[in-house]
Design a binder for these strands. Structure first.
Lengths: 252, 252
DNA sequence: CGTTAGTTTGACGCGATTCAACCTTCGTGG
DNA sequence: CCACGAAGGTTGAATCGCGTCAAACTAACG
């Protein structure tokens, strides 16, 4: 029953370039395009677990691709209540679209040690000019992010605690699978019960009890932070996931 | 106390082109750019109040700009629970980003008679090639949509019923103000209590009671579907809105 | 003038929170 | 190598915000 938010990032075969892997699942990338994407990773910034590397209200110009690690995008209310907007996984962008206003509206916190690839805004423009196929892939990334967030809203607004947890597990599982970070229905969960509660709009106590119920029902097992989804079909039934889940996003 | 989801759309001076108005608030548009944006409105489709004009799971290729009216983007769970993802107001896009997958993941329902401007995907590409300034404005639109949805998630996850309602009123007020559809802290609310409940993840009964409490506290008044925010400062205090609200979005 | 959609109201119940312990694990420094 | 503190997990009891049910009311429309 223990969730272990271990900071050592050694789970599985970490993708060389999760972004390339993610986009390849969608479209065929030419060698030139792959080179360009790898070139985006020339710069590198490392962030220790526990650090906020984007802070609400502060200057935020350059954007990033997360190369490895887990991070959380969140907002804090004045009285300390926290809502997590989403989980950022390897290959995800932080600030993909041009922000010509100046400040961040959310904070981003590293839950494990993270490697970032800072991207100059000019590089994004370059994509639109020189790589039309990549440009539409980025558009897909945008739509996908929006869709994930929309599903998050549905989860928060109209699902029970039990359903929320199942739905989140499935989201993480599918997203990790796409970048080669989960296999055989197993993945490492790098966030605490407190994080889960702020993600799902519940209390830690209730998260704990619900997690217990999930394992008691034989749907999920957990040891040392590793989650195992024991019956995907029933889980998808419970979560009432759209068909197909996280693969086929269209509307923004 | 009556919310009147009147379908006659005659509130105030409807903007000729709400999109132009919205973008003008952000950047200076050249005559050429304004012409181009107006040109997007050549095609026109009308939809009656109550109609779903985008349906989850169905083909969805062309995108739209909403010229006039109110629409709701929502998702339905199998057992009938509904969560509204967001309110679509004049000048808003539906499906701005290129969707090279085929189907819609959400439904969109017109709450008033709506006028739509269908946009061929090619037009969006044209913007990126010929109008770099417009292209970044569209990027801003995307970021803004994401930020509104993120605030929606915070609302659903970590605010009380009372706060949710206040926060929503402020969101609508500010968005309508930007396109000239609200004045003197008043605007017409074109959705029912049922819609409010599915928007805020509450029951209609509780929405009603909370609305009653808001008016009793002298913060808001309502007659025939017209909302009046009587004390913006206190409302913003209650909603704990970020500074500045809905104007300065940066992170995606 | 009946029908339909939406609003209003009260009584009751439950899902989730709060509070307050206590326990376990792990990293750190003496 | 053990002592200690911090962070996170576990548990029960009491409480409350919000949901459910059910019925009456009101306005709009043909």
């Amino acid at each position: 029953m223990q969730i272990d938010p271990a900071n050592t990032w050694t789970d599985m075969n970490v993708a060389e370039n999760a972004l390339v892997q993610k986009l390849s699942a969608l479209i065929h990338l030419s060698a030139e395009e792959v080179d360009f994407l790898n070139g985006l990773h020339i710069n590198r910034a490392d962030v220790k677990a526990g650090c906020d590397f984007v802070s609400e209200g502060e200057e935020f110009r350059s954007s990033f691709v997360l190369r490895s690690g887990w991070a959380l995008r969140y907002r804090l209310l004045k009285d300390g209540r926290r809502q997590i907007i989403g989980v950022i996984l390897p290959g995800d962008f932080i600030g993909l679209n041009v922000n010509f206003r100046r400040t961040a509206t959310y904070s981003v916190c590293a839950k494990t040690d993270c490697a970032l690839a800072p991207i100059e805004p000019l590089r994004i423009l370059e994509i639109h000019q020189r790589f039309p196929v990549l440009a539409s892939a980025l558009s897909w990334v945008t739509v996908r992010e929006y869709s994930i967030l929309a599903e998050h809203a549905v989860r928060l607004g109209r699902r029970t605690a039990y359903e929320r947890l199942v739905h989140l597990m499935l989201e993480l599982y599918h997203r990790l699978e796409l970048i080669g970070l989960s296999e055989e229905h197993r993945f490492k969960l790098h966030i605490s019960q407190k994080d889960l509660s702020d993600l799902l709009g519940l209390s830690t106590v209730h998260i704990h009890r619900t997690l217990r119920r999930l394992t008691a029902d034989g749907l999920v097992s957990m040891e040392r932070g590793e989650i195992r989804l024991k019956d995907i079909e029933r889980l998808e039934e419970i979560a009432d996931t759209p068909e197909p889940f996280l693969e086929d996003f269209a509307v923004l």
